[in-house]
């Protein structure tokens, strides 16, 4: 059964076509890598699923229903930028999430924050960008949802912290839920992936099971991507 479906979705900004007739299904219980070079349309594809953008043509459904309050309740989205109100403390931010998301697990968030030695009364403004991104990841993963969408969770994170991020993702998403991770840093996340989607110039150029793809080509996803990307050029 699929969670999220894109039906003939195109997105244009003026004369530029960013996504071109995308048909895609995100299945349940899988970790899916949305892979592609910068400007391939990964973020646009994700923003469409989170109603931040509206499709120029086509439509998107979540569990066969149009996107709306129900889909927003069941999708936890980590954008590529920091969206928190920096004037608030961590505690106030937790209050905010608890207030607006009934599926937010505060105890889990506090436990994860404790692991990072973050004090609840710390103002977000006084945290480094890396720490703010970690806090945001904790907030997203502390929700019990059916789909986690992580847009470039490793972008701007130093290599030492990448392991923490990947480990947090692997050990904290809800069992039975799906995770859609967008990145161009394929080598770092390759080991997590069940499925891969290669996106280039607004088109899906490959979608397959990660293990099947590795067995078929006898090489890593990273290598396959480099090859596909080179050929597509």
């Amino acid at each position: 059964m699929s969670l999220l479906q894109y039906h003939h979705v195109s997105k244009r900004f003026g004369n530029t076509t960013v996504l071109d007739n995308i048909n895609l299904e995100i299945p349940t219980g899988k970790i899916i890598g949305l892979l592609g070079p910068n400007g391939a349309g990964k973020s646009t594809l994700i923003k469409l699923a989170n109603t931040l953008l509206t499709p120029t043509t086509g439509n998107i459904t979540f569990q066969n229903q149009p996107l709306g309050v129900a889909s927003k309740t069941e999708i936890a989205y980590l954008p590529e930028r920091t969206y928190l109100d920096k004037t608030r403390t961590i505690r106030q931010t937790l209050d905010f999430f608890q207030n607006f998301y009934h599926n937010f697990d505060r105890a889990k968030a506090e436990r994860l924050l404790d692991d990072l030695d973050l004090q609840l009364d710390t103002q977000i403004l006084h945290m480094s960008k890396g720490m703010q991104e970690k806090l945001q990841l904790i907030l997203v993963l502390s929700r019990h949802v059916k789909l986690y969408i992580l847009d470039e969770p490793l972008g701007g994170i130093d290599p030492a912290a990448r392991d923490y991020i990947l480990d947090t993702i692997l050990t904290n998403f809800d069992e039975g839920a799906s995770v859609l991770i967008s990145t161009h840093l394929i080598a770092d996340i390759e080991k997590l992936l069940d499925e891969v989607i290669f996106l280039q110039n607004g088109k899906i150029i490959l979608q397959d099971d990660a293990d099947h793809l590795r067995a078929q080509t006898q090489t890593s996803i990273d290598e396959i991507f480099r090859k596909e990307f080179k050929n597509a050029r």
Partner: peptide, 13 residues
């Protein structure tokens, strides 16, 4: 602003 990424993804119309 960046905050809109949170505002628009809250489960609110």
């Amino acid at each position: 602003s960046d905050e809109a990424y949170l505002t628009y993804t809250l489960p609110i119309k």
